[in-house]
Structures are given as C-alpha cells and as structure tokens.
Write a protein that binds this DNA or RNA. Structure first.
Lengths: 144, 144
DNA sequence: CTGGATGCAAACTCTTTGCATGCAT
DNA sequence: ATGCATGCAAAGAGTTTGCATCCAG
C-alpha cells in the first residue's frame, strides 16, 4: 500500500495553510522523502536524499524543517542512548530495537501496556503524551 | 537505606581487580558520586561533583570512566530524544518520565510487560538485553 | 619498573544562530 | 509588497582523540 506523492503534498499543504505557514519546495520534497523512507533517518540522510531531487538545500533548513514537522506531528524523534538524532515518519504506536554495537534500528509492532507507567507519571505530576519503548541489544550480525 | 562509601569502594575494587584494571582515586570518587546521586547526571554534572572532592579531574577522564562503568554494569545510559547523555546509577528495571520542554527526568517504578516486544525482537534476529521505557510529556511546572 | 590511566589541548561531530537574500502569499 | 523561509558561514555544545606524564600494581 504505497501512497502517492500527491497525497503527501496535499496533506502537507493543508496542515501548513491551516497554520498560516508557507508551502516551500524544500518542505514538499522533505515531506515526500520522510514519508516514503523505510528506515529511520538522520538529518544528514535527509539532506542526501533531498539533494538528489532539489539542489542547494542546506543542513540548517533540514534541521528547521524536521523541527517543524515534529511540531506538526509528521515525524517523531526516536529516543536513543547516543549518536545523531534519528527521525521516524511512523507516528503511530510502535517500538524500536537498537543494536548497541552498530546502532542499527528496526521497528517492532507489538502491544506494550504502559498504562501503569502512565498512571505513575501522572501521580508524579507529569502529563505524559507518548511512550518511547527501546529494546537495546545486539543485531544478528553483531552477535556473531 | 543509605550505603556507605566503604561498601561502594570495596565493590568497585573487587570488580576492577577481577578484570585486571586499576583502582584509581578518580574511579573511586566517581563511583561514590554516581552511586549516591539521586538524579540522573550528565558528564558535566559528574565533573562538578567530583572536582569538589578531587581537584584537576578532566572531562575526558569522566567520559572514559563513565564508559568503563557502563561496561562494568555500574551505570546505564538513559535513552533520550535530545540533549547531553544522561547516566543513571540505578541498573534495575525501571522507567523514566522526561519533560519535553525543560528536560527534567524522573524515575518511575512500575511493571511494564515487554515480553511480547522481546519476542518480536528475537524474531527480527536481535538478542535484546534490556528495555528502555521513556514517557515523554510535560512536567507540572511546564504544563502551567 | 611498566603499562594502564590521566590531564591537557586540540580535533571532531552534530546542531544552532546570525544575517542578507529570495520567494510564497 | 510583505515578511517568512532559505542558504551560507560561523559559532556553539557535547564528545572523542593524541600524546606526554604519572602512578597503581
């Protein structure tokens, strides 16, 4: 089930206009790149992908746009124990496995019951919004 | 139930000797600082605390020692979505709440069932070792 | 003594900021 | 026309590396 670029573009345009923000080529291309990315990407990854389609895009713009997209709910920052920031265009509930040796990240799709943790967080005075679940270990290659 | 510095020192000495590594004043003091720290600390935090007890300790030594202690299982790096690396001397299973606005981190003590996630990770070829659970939201102060 | 551990300085990576220009509205 | 968004350069935060010296065993 692949979604077309036009659908991505239309959705982005709608969100941006509803907030009085501009639809620029950089934002359109970055949105397409992110939404069709299979893996978790760094800002550098995004720049590389985008540059193939639109020249002269700068890293500061990539960072600014990633931050914007995060606010818009289009991407989520992945919690990691080190290394450059990773961004994930899947915003639905899922988990990550990270290899502590090579840094590889993969999605998991299982149910994790965080209701007791959320309740404890509220008792501690927090207003929890989402839960990052990261399993740290070794991938098949690094285990060998 | 406070544990004395002597107990910390003895435990550290034992682990280091068993691996043929040296017991230096820097390591002893850092171990005491970390084990008695209530909150989650950055490398800078550790340096500040240590400098009060032992002058001329350098940040590279703090980083090297934190990495060593991580290998020894004395501290764990906390998964976060951004900011400087956080270290936690609690190595038993627990969760964290992080304020996405001010970065405050607090411990939670609840049971989170990650067995299905672990199984899924193994199916994906990983050998999961531990699970980081981080609830992201707003703390009481920042919610206002 | 001897080599692992340290301190210092410098390099490096990742990210943010300042500012002049450009383009979406 | 207006001012938000961009590109470029430079600065900034956090972490790592190189190397001479030191000290724990």
């Amino acid at each position: 089930m692949t979604t077309s670029s036009e659908t991505y573009d239309r959705e982005l345009t709608e969100i941006l206009h509803s907030r009085g923000q501009r639809v620029t080529p950089q934002r359109v291309v970055m949105n397409r790149v992110l939404r069709s990315a299979k893996r978790h990407v760094t800002a550098e990854d995004v720049l590389r992908e985008v540059t193939g389609k639109l020249p002269n895009v700068s890293l500061p713009t990539v960072y600014a746009t990633l931050e914007l997209f995060e606010e818009l709910g289009l991407v989520r920052r992945v919690a990691t124990e080190s290394g450059p920031a990773l961004f994930d265009s899947r915003t639905d509930e899922h988990q990550h496995v990270v290899c502590r040796r090579c840094g590889r990240v993969q999605d998991l799709d299982t149910a994790v019951d965080d209701s007791r943790a959320r309740a404890a967080a509220r008792r501690a005075g927090f207003r929890p919004e989402h839960t990052d679940v990261v399993l740290v270990g070794l991938c098949a290659d690094c285990a060998a």
